[in-house]
């Protein structure tokens, strides 16, 4: 696996250029609801990276909260909800 990775690095560009990184950073910006619509030249790369970290942390927290929520919903459920889940699976 490591040999495959090193080969692909060499066949591309052996050096990472600033342009490549800037391009990737602005792609990241498009994924961030907070700063998606800001003009890219107005937002620094550091700011985008920081917002990216915050966004991932928020999403992790949402998964935590939703896991708890779903656990509670299962507790208050009866067999009717097994059917609902099966129905969802069929869709």
């Amino acid at each position: 696996m490591s040999s495959r990775r090193s080969r692909s690095r060499q066949s591309g560009s052996s050096r990472i250029t600033d342009d490549q990184i800037n391009d990737l950073v602005s792609k990241l910006q498009q994924l961030l609801p907070e700063i998606r619509h800001s003009q890219s030249d107005k937002v620094s790369a550091a700011k985008i990276l920081q917002e990216t970290c915050n966004y991932i942390k928020n999403l992790h927290r949402e998964v935590d909260d939703l896991s708890e929520r779903l656990s509670e919903l299962l507790a208050s459920s009866d067999t009717a909800q097994a059917a609902i889940i099966r129905n969802l699976l069929m869709q």
Binding site: T52, I56, L59, H60, E62, V63, I84, L88
Partner: peptide, 23 residues
Amino acid sequence: TADYIHCLSAQVKVMNAIAHHLS
């Protein structure tokens, strides 16, 4: 990171939809 964010937000959407449906 970009791909991870994509997948993570899709997962949150799925879980939200199930929670909504169950409640």
